[in-house]
């Protein structure tokens, strides 16, 4: 394969999220590399770092990319992309592509750092409705991050830790600020941390389920975003919705993957025209 042909086959999807920037590189619809980098205050730098990391893995340079689609809240911060797409469309695309062993995906729930969203798909996998959380941080990853600090548990360990709980505490507040003080008073009352945590997972799951109900979700629910790695939330959400939920292997890359898939479609569409 000569280099021009090779280039035309390789595309990238870049998901500039509020916390993490993720990159997926595809060659003829096959993931060949992915990487991420914290977005922090500089989305441009994050994109550069994540993209370099991913390209290095497969010994390529940016010039080898035939098409780049950017998505996520910082989607317009990337100057060199060929097309901008919203995370809704990208997410649906990624989820549809990965599918689920539990049956056809009809709902996608994404729990990101700063927002959560629910996408409804029809039998053909097309987006027919979607909803995103309102301004506040309740029901997003940020909420859990704050709580992890308050409880002094590592963010990555939250899920497993909560499984130890036998007696989840009922937490009333959904606002991040109020919930934090409620958690502090529970700690003072010597409640077990795993029980508090399980209660918090329940709060988030309830918030997301409320959001999801607005679009009348159907099975199978495809659960992704960084938050989907938390097994505690997945279980609470299953309970709350009463629907089968599937979490893909690397839930935080689904949107970047979707963007890359769209990139490869657009590449071919352009090549044809």
């Amino acid at each position: 394969m000569n280099s021009i042909e090779k280039k035309s086959q390789i595309v990238a999807g870049i998901d500039v999220g509020s916390a993490m920037t993720k990159v997926a590189i595809l060659e003829t619809k096959e993931i060949i590399a992915q990487a991420m980098s914290p977005t922090l205050a500089d989305p441009r730098l994050a994109v550069k770092l994540a993209l370099e990391k991913a390209l290095q893995e497969v010994n390529l340079s940016q010039n080898d990319l035939g098409f780049i689609v950017t998505t996520g809240y910082g989607r317009r911060a990337v100057e060199f992309g060929n097309q901008v797409i919203t995370e809704i469309t990208a997410n649906a695309k990624g989820a549809r592509f990965l599918g689920s062993p539990l049956g056809q995906v009809r709902t996608v729930i994404d729990l990101g750092a700063q927002d959560s969203k629910v996408i409804k798909l029809n039998e053909n996998g097309e987006v027919i409705d979607f909803i995103m959380n309102e301004k506040c941080a309740a029901g997003t990853g940020r909420f859990l991050e704050v709580m992890a600090k308050t409880l002094d548990i590592k963010f990555e360990d939250l899920g497993e830790f909560s499984l130890k709980s036998k007696n989840p505490v009922k937490i009333n507040a959904t606002c991040t600020v109020f919930a934090e003080s409620e958690v502090i008073s529970l700690i003072v009352q010597k409640k077990k941390r795993e029980d508090i945590l399980a209660g918090l997972h329940h709060v988030i799951a309830k918030k997301i389920a409320d959001l999801a109900r607005a679009v009348t979700p159907k099975e199978v629910v495809f659960f992704d975003g960084g938050g989907a790695k938390n097994i505690g939330i997945k279980r609470s959400l299953e309970e709350e919705l009463g629907l089968k939920i599937y979490v893909p292997e690397e839930p935080q890359f689904v949107i970047a993957l979707g963007a890359a898939l769209i990139a490869s479609e657009l590449l071919h569409a352009n090549a044809r025209s």
């Binding site: 797409i85 469309t89 987006v127 995103m132």
Partner: peptide, 19 residues
């Protein structure tokens, strides 16, 4: 913006079988 753009993408994909 995100919501409106996503909505427009949804319509376009329906209209042109795209994305």
């Amino acid at each position: 913006k995100t919501r409106v753009e996503a909505f427009l993408e949804m319509i376009k994909s329906k209209k042109y079988e795209f994305y």
